[in-house]
Design a protein around this nucleic acid. Structure first.
Lengths: 209, 209
DNA sequence: GTCTATAGGCGGATAGAC
DNA sequence: GTCTATCCGCCTATAGAC
């Protein structure tokens, strides 16, 4: 689980994407100029346009790459044979830990995607909905089979994802907790938040380990 | 509690602020030009500079006005004599309902404040911390007196505020729920998320009414 | 695949008349 | 308090040499 061994030999397109993600997160999409990006990468502005046809396409690529990596991982959990509580707990834990570790890219997804032009936006919205429905379905299942309290599943899913997404801005590397600890605490809080009609300590992180 | 009767006779400075808040939320601070704002208000660019010395100062004013209105309301709840559970529940409910009703202004506070220049930012950070500490202290108190499970109060507060803040982007006026319903559901979820060592249904929204 | 040079427009902000 | 006119810099993007 070491962070990408192949970083030593990273293509220019990838280096541009990573630098752009960091700058977009830090200064916003509209607050980042192609000149500033070029300087950060160590090339000229023109070179950027050799790898990406436009600033918009670059943002779309950043979002697409991370979505394509994480969605299958969440899908595998969501479609496994575990209880809804356990699946949701693990999916939220994964979601949160990825949001911290890859927060530059995830910030582009959650905060900067709104600046995509209509054509890029259409594709993005579709993938985003595919991703979020994995969580919502699990919540619905848990409500239907009595693992969670009766409640609006859309509203509950919105609340839980919103909670976990907040780490993008609120997490500080200098803080007292590791990403894994934070993800566990958030997933525990989320599961408790859904409520368990049977008061047994079902599927808290501690019970699951 | 009707929404500002005096809206009929609103000064130009206020009209500029409201239009700017809406545009900043929709297109971002850096995605909104002073020309676009002037057009929206129905004046020329130059007139804007008669009321606000810079675009930065305008953003700072938008944030300041809403903060100054909501903070005392939360403070009153946080410093009341109720149990920590009830105080937190009511404070989160207020926070959430205001985030929905005044989402243009709150979005400027939560999402666009990062574009403030250092001097404006210093003031902003101070007021933001004063606001959030009201929630954190209540969480701490509830943990200390056994109303909530033992946990890191900073982390828990971050999670709950992050959850409630998500309505800024995820709330849709066309949805099935009123702002009050959403705020109640979120506050209930938040309180459950903190956990109650004594399993009694303490301070859920239903119990509190 | 990277560079220099430049197009062409829009950005925030100001001067000064009325 | 609102206007017209304007400054000047930076923006995305392109042309074309090496």
């Amino acid at each position: 689980m070491i962070n990408r061994d192949s970083q030593q030999e990273q293509g220019t397109a990838e280096r541009i994407r990573d630098a752009a993600a960091a700058l977009f997160r830090e200064n916003g999409f509209n607050g980042t100029s192609m000149q500033a990006l070029a300087t950060a990468v160590g090339v000229t502005k023109s070179s950027l346009y050799h790898h990406y046809p436009s600033k918009q396409a670059l943002l779309a690529a950043i979002i697409e790459v991370t979505m394509s990596r994480v969605t299958p991982l969440v899908r595998e959990i969501a479609e496994s044979d575990l209880s809804a509580s356990l699946r949701l707990h693990r999916a939220l834990e994964l979601h949160t830990v990825e949001s911290i570790r890859e927060r530059d890219h995830v910030a582009c997804f959650r905060e900067e995607s709104r600046y995509l032009s209509p054509d890029f936006m259409a594709t993005h919205r579709q993938k985003r909905d595919e991703y979020e429905v994995l969580f919502r379905q699990t919540v619905e299942e848990g409500i239907d089979n009595g693992e969670f309290l009766a409640q609006d599943p859309a509203l509950a899913t919105m609340a839980l994802l919103g909670m976990c997404d907040s780490v993008i801005r609120r997490y500080r590397p200098a803080g007292r907790h590791t990403p894994d600890e934070i993800a566990l605490a958030f997933a525990d809080t989320a599961l408790r938040g859904l409520g368990t009609p049977a008061a047994a300590g079902v599927a808290t992180g501690e019970a699951a380990r």
